[in-house]
Amino acid sequence: MPFDGCCPDCKIPGDDCPLVWGQCSHVFHMHCILKWLNSQQVHQQCPMCRQEWKFKE
């Protein structure tokens, strides 16, 4: 989804749908990456580059 929109779990864009960056520099809606990470059985990887997912601080 476009980042200026909102993820499928949100009704309206804004603070309830923040963007988060990984250490790999990929960016996702918070709800989208959390759903992806929770669906991974063993390794939590970035869906774009498959590096181990770590939130950028």
Rank of each mutant, 00 (worst) to 15 (best):
Q40R: 13
E57D: 15
P47I: 03
G5V: 06
P47H: 01
R50N: 14
C6L: 05
W53T: 00
F28C: 02
Q51W: 12
P2V: 07
K35P: 01
W36K: 02
K35N: 11
N38L: 11
F3C: 07
P13T: 06
E57C: 12
P13G: 06
L34M: 14
M48S: 12
K56Y: 15
L34T: 13
M1G: 13
L37Y: 00
H29F: 05
Q40V: 08
R50Y: 14
S25I: 05
E52G: 13
W53D: 00
P47S: 04
H29W: 02
I12R: 08
M1Q: 11
G14R: 04
Q40E: 13
W21I: 07
H29K: 00
L19M: 09
M30V: 09
F3S: 10
P8G: 08
K56Q: 14
S39G: 12
L34C: 12
C6W: 00
E57S: 15
V42P: 03
C24M: 04
R50W: 13
C32I: 00
S39Y: 04
P2Y: 08
W21F: 10
D16P: 02
Q40P: 03
N38P: 03
F3A: 10
V20C: 06
D4I: 10
F3R: 11
N38F: 05
D9E: 12
C32D: 02
